[in-house]
Design a protein around this nucleic acid. Structure first.
Lengths: 199, 199
DNA sequence: CACAACTAAATTGCGCACAACTAAAATGGG
DNA sequence: CCCATTTTAGTTGTGCGCAATTTAGTTGTG
């Protein structure tokens, strides 16, 4: 992490809202319409922000763990997909990782330059480019096996919590996924698609 | 979202591991030493990946919601900090958001170019640059008040779940935060650079 | 067959994140 | 007082994420 003064306890996200962060099950939730805008804005601050911070915190740890392998975090994700599924066209890699060719093309070029994959145009469909592991790319999997253990250890969380976190992330991603189109047309015309319980 | 074919149900993260993702409380967790490397690698795939995907899914929704305000997601975070705390030096903004000047300097320049903030060197400490809201920047807060509601609506999650998610994210961020230095010296050579609260 | 519509990759441009470095100012110890 | 150290911003370079566009190949329809 860049700013790690050592003396400063950091984790600023943990400070302002100790009220709800320690309650594992707060069952009665107020109507959204009840919550004043200011509160909601604060809550929002917390959530988007926690996610942002957590994502980058993971990035830091992965960066260290992956340095030995010479991979960045997104490159590691691509390699995971290839190790699991074997040779794939760019499009399908993108489907797995939710990335488009604008991101993947240069990334795959770098993996190719590193000698980990080869890219070859499919003879069946000349539009498609098949990405397959080289021997070095396949061999790298062995070194990568130790990475997850280090990451899980670094989180310091029991697998229970990791699983719970993952569940919530799945839910929220799925929801946002179907929602962002709705939001789009909510933005243009209709005011009533909105949320169920509010004014 | 870039790839949103409409017909494809997407959410590929939900497919491969239905085993543990639906269990809200799996209490007995195996020793990490028990879990075979392959399993752990799969789990790891899921967790780093879910977080990555969730973060970007949020990014998409925010992008739409913030388009009216002419702000990007990180710019919005900076504005939130300024709305909450008033004028601050760059350093302190960075502390709140865990960002360094390499990221903030150009970002703040863009906010200044947009007329939302002004940057002026402190007369007390000539190193420091104080960032303060302009009238336009202050006024923008009114428009921003509607954003959180839209985001929460887009998630489709009850506040309970959002709070739970936030709790877990805090925990994991804090853990990773203290951990990544440990990982670093585990990785390099010296055990003595250390830091206060760890092993 | 010709032509429109679609699809897969790649490219361009912009902004963010971060490491590494520089410049300038403050601080503290001899 | 002088100088090493530290602190604060800024700059440079690399890589990711995404929108928008381009290029090339495929498919469907008349």
């Amino acid at each position: 992490m860049t700013a790690q003064p050592g003396t400063a306890p950091t984790v600023p996200t943990a400070q302002p809202a100790p009220d709800l962060s320690q309650a594992p099950e707060l069952s009665q939730v107020p109507d959204l319409s009840q919550v004043p805008d200011g509160e909601l804005l604060r809550l929002d601050h917390q959530i988007c922000f926690s996610l942002h911070a957590a994502s980058r915190a993971f990035g830091s740890v992965y960066r260290v763990a992956l340095k030995d392998l010479g991979l960045t975090y997104p490159q590691y994700l691509v390699m995971l997909v290839l190790w699991e599924h074997g040779a794939l066209p760019v499009k399908q890699i993108g489907d797995h990782l939710r990335l488009d060719s604008g991101t993947l093309s240069p990334l795959l070029k770098r993996l190719e330059a590193a000698g980990l994959v080869r890219r070859e145009r499919s003879s069946e469909d000349e539009r498609s480019v098949t990405v397959r592991l080289t021997e070095a790319g396949t061999a790298l999997r062995e070194q990568a096996l130790c990475v997850p253990r280090r990451i899980v250890a670094a989180t310091g969380l029991p697998l229970t919590d990791i699983a719970a976190l993952q569940t919530l992330l799945h839910r929220v991603t799925a929801a946002l996924d179907t929602a962002d189109l709705d939001t789009a047309d909510l933005d243009t015309t209709e005011p009533d698609t909105a949320e169920p319980g509010s004014a």
